[in-house]
Amino acid sequence: MTRVVVCGSLNMDVVVQSARRPLPGETVLDAEVAFLPGGKGLNQAIAAARLGPPTSIFGAVGDDAFGNTLRGFLADNNVDTLGLHVVTGQASGLALIQVAQGDNAITVASGANRYFSEIMVSAEPRPSEVWVAQFETPLEATRIIMRKARQAGARTVLNMAPFQSYPAALLKSIDVAVLNEIELTQATDITIGTSSALSTVVEACHKLRAKGARAVVATLGPRGAVVVTAESATAIPGAKADVIDTTGAGDCFIGAFAARLVVGATPVEAAQYANVAAARSVERLGAAPSMPTAKEVAARLASA
């Protein structure tokens, strides 16, 4: 069966909106708060499922009210949750997201996500599937899961976020690695900023490819994305958006990318579609709740 399989984190996002973020030691009043499902794994699974392909998630939640809410939200969005494990005595992951002036700052308490392991993944990967992972769950489990998926012939997508030191062998099992400017800088020691030349971004992507990834996608926010393979480097222009909240935009890109990859798109075609989907997602508050439907993305593509 063709499907997207996401292995990763699930959090309850506590989103606090204010006119600006407080300085150290300062209190800012008149903020608004919302409790919204999130976590990179959950966000990416929701993004993929809303765009059409069958989607499953493997991960861990706590035996608490937030865990129940997260499972229910996934089920309501047609994500297969049979691979979710409840970790007794642990709280579900939680992210404090401060939103101000259209940008965000995030602090994560991993909770049950720290206990996710490869033995929780009971499904056997298939060549027709796309398997997705991130860096919010234990990296050794990710290495084992991605290696098994790649050996089975599935396509593998790794979102190297939030960046941390990773097992050297991990990238050898990855078809497509996806990073933003900050993560690409951390992964390659080549400084990538908002004004970096395309050639510098491509150089950094090739440096990461040399470590094993078959293709690298650099997401550049309003500037779009760059897709680097052994054969070419393709720049994808940014899509226009009326920005309300950028939380989850990168996860939307990953989920949409996997959703197109699983139906036969090339990395460049998948990135072009994902770029538009991510632009649509920033026009609503929250991470998972902001993920667009296939109809919404089609409408945006038609009007471009």
Rank of each mutant, 00 (worst) to 15 (best):
P237T: 14
I119L: 06
D13T: 10
G111T: 13
A271C: 12
A168T: 15
G111N: 14
A49V: 04
V297M: 01
P54Y: 09
F58P: 00
L94V: 11
Q134P: 03
N113V: 14
I244S: 06
A95Q: 03
L198D: 09
A235Y: 09
G59F: 01
R260D: 12
L94N: 05
V28G: 02
M146F: 04
G62E: 12
V176K: 00
R21E: 12
E231V: 08
T266H: 06
L184H: 02
S290H: 01
F163H: 11
G62Y: 07
V14H: 12
V61P: 12
M291G: 03
V99E: 05
R214I: 02
L184T: 03
A45I: 08
A210Q: 14
S232H: 13
G38I: 12
A112Q: 14
A105W: 02
A215H: 04
I190G: 04
A34R: 14
P267Q: 10
S173V: 11
V202H: 04
R223T: 11
G221R: 05
A47T: 04
A225S: 15
I244A: 11
V61M: 11
A105K: 13
R209W: 07
R143I: 13
D103W: 09
G264K: 06
D251R: 09
S122T: 13
N68P: 02
D80L: 02
G102A: 04
G93F: 13
V28D: 03
M120C: 06
G59S: 03
F66N: 04
I182D: 04
A218K: 00
V33R: 10
Q44M: 06
G62I: 13
V276K: 05
L285C: 09
E136P: 00
K295Y: 09
N11T: 10
N78I: 02
T88R: 15
L10V: 03
M160I: 12
V121S: 02
D76A: 10
D251E: 08
V263R: 15
F116P: 00
N104I: 08
D64F: 06
I106R: 03
Q44E: 07
Q272P: 01
R209I: 05
I97N: 03
R300Q: 15
D103S: 09
T69I: 02
A210E: 15
T81F: 11
I119Q: 10
Q186Y: 06
P267C: 09
D13C: 12
Q98N: 07
V86T: 15
A287H: 02
S117Q: 09
T200C: 08
A105I: 09
G93A: 11
Q17M: 12
A34P: 01
P237Q: 09
T107V: 15
T69H: 01
G264W: 11
A204R: 00
A288K: 02
A256Y: 08
N159R: 10
L301M: 15
R71Y: 06
S232I: 04
I244L: 13
G153Y: 06
A152P: 04
P125I: 08
R126G: 10
Q151I: 02
V201M: 00
M146H: 06
A278M: 07
